Amino acid sequence: MKNNHPLLSVEQVCKSFGNKQVARNISFSLQKGEIGCLLGPSGCGKTTLLRVIAGFESIQSGTVCIDSTIVSSSTRNEAPENRSIGMVFQDYALFPHLSVSDNVGFGINKMPRNERHKRVGELLTLVGLEEVANNYPHEISGGQQQRVALARALAPKPELLLLDEPFSNLDALLRERLTVEVRDILKKLGTTALLVTHNQHEAFSVADKIGVLFDGTMQQWDNAHSIYHKPASLEVARFVGEGTLIDGKVTSTGKIQTALGPLEGHFSIPCEPGCSVDLLIRPEDILHIEDNCLKATILKKSFRGPNIVYLLQLASGEKCQALVSSHHDHRIGERIGIQPEVDNLIVFPKSCQL
């Protein structure tokens, strides 16, 4: 019979340092084989929460369970080495005096020699480092060092892999490539993993489930599509993706009057006619149409190769962004024609006058 309990379960966890509460009633779970991500700005509590799960920090209340076993509670804090976890640190923490092979095999040195040699060889092949097996950490690139750290953490076959900002020391192009590679490796092995990052692109690339943290609270735990298109709070809406908020008035079911004109679509949350709302407008929601009667003034522009993101001022004085092909290169101060194309109306009620 298939076991459906979560591999990782965090329930109502609270953590304080003195009078400062850094985790407030946080709950989420991961099924076996899922990859999760804790996403948020610096100081939001995501690394502390990862350290709690790893066993490096105790908690005041709540529970952490790994494979249905309580490993953290107000009265229990199982040692990290007894939690069946692997850990990849931000600085990789490789042993400089050991070769790549010996680094990978460090955590399985009690295994019979032949089995250990076989396991190390399998992992080096998996992460594509067979050719540098005898090199030392200072002789390989940052991306290769990151893969060594990953292979070393995977060597003991942990139930759960924890990764603390593992790509932050890499340049942007290498980071983007390695996030995809790491996801492929974890999925191939069926490893359950939890990643911490402040980079939403990493979170979107790697994770099945994303938890957005602000000020020690879990604002939303969901898949990437829902977090982007159905943010649960203003904080999530502002942090994830790009966008601006404009005023809106609900006129009837699925219809809003705004400075962009009347908009119609599916509301992210129910709103009654008469409600005043903040409406989130993403850059991709605004089309550039030269001869359209609706005009906006360019305040700023950000060139991004194939596209330009324009910051626009509407007649109302409100601002929005537009993602436009870079073939349309307009000057700051120029007025351009725009047209909203918004099907998913992401709204946050301000007040209702029914």
Rank of each mutant, 00 (worst) to 15 (best):
C275G: 06
I210K: 04
H229V: 05
R282G: 02
P306L: 07
G216A: 12
N223R: 13
D291C: 02
K255P: 02
I281R: 05
I210R: 02
R183D: 04
A232F: 08
F204H: 13
L260C: 03
E181S: 03
I298M: 03
D215R: 11
I185T: 03
Q257G: 12
G248I: 06
I210H: 01
T258F: 05
M218V: 05
D215Q: 14
I289H: 09
I210Y: 02
K301G: 02
D208S: 11
R177N: 08
A296D: 07
Q200P: 05
I256A: 05
G248M: 11
C271Y: 12
A232K: 12
T179C: 15
I269L: 10
R238F: 01
G254E: 15
S302T: 12
L186K: 03
E181A: 02
Q257P: 02
L186F: 09
K209D: 04
N223M: 10
L294H: 08
K300Q: 12
L234I: 14
G211W: 08
I289V: 14
F239N: 00
G241Q: 06
S302F: 13
M218S: 09
S252Y: 07
L189K: 12
V240S: 00
T217V: 14
S233E: 05
P283W: 08
T192N: 11
P231R: 02
A207Q: 04
T297D: 01
S276F: 15
K249T: 15
Q220G: 04
L213G: 00
A224S: 15
C293W: 10
K301Y: 01
E242C: 01
L194H: 06
Q257F: 14
E235L: 09
V277I: 15
E290K: 10
N307V: 12
L280W: 05
D215K: 10
D285C: 14
L287T: 11
E181N: 00
L260D: 03
A203D: 06
L178C: 10
H225F: 15
D208H: 14
D285K: 05
I286R: 10
G248A: 10
T179K: 11
Q257N: 14
L294E: 07
E242I: 05
R238E: 11
E290R: 08
D222W: 10
G211A: 15
G274L: 12
I289T: 12
K295D: 01
T179V: 08
L213I: 15
N292P: 00
N307W: 10
L195K: 06
H229G: 00
L194K: 04
G254K: 13
P270K: 09
P306I: 00
N199G: 08
S252M: 11
L194P: 01
K300I: 01
L195C: 12
G274Y: 14
G248S: 12
N292H: 13
T244M: 13
G243R: 08
L213H: 03
D291P: 00
L234G: 04
G211Y: 06
L263V: 13
E290C: 01
R183S: 05
P306Q: 04
W221V: 05
Q220I: 06
L280G: 03
G190Y: 14
W221P: 00
E181K: 02
E242H: 08
R282D: 06
L245H: 06
E264P: 03
G211R: 05
H266S: 13
G211N: 04
C293T: 13
F214A: 01
N199V: 12
N223K: 11
E264A: 15
T251C: 14
P306F: 03
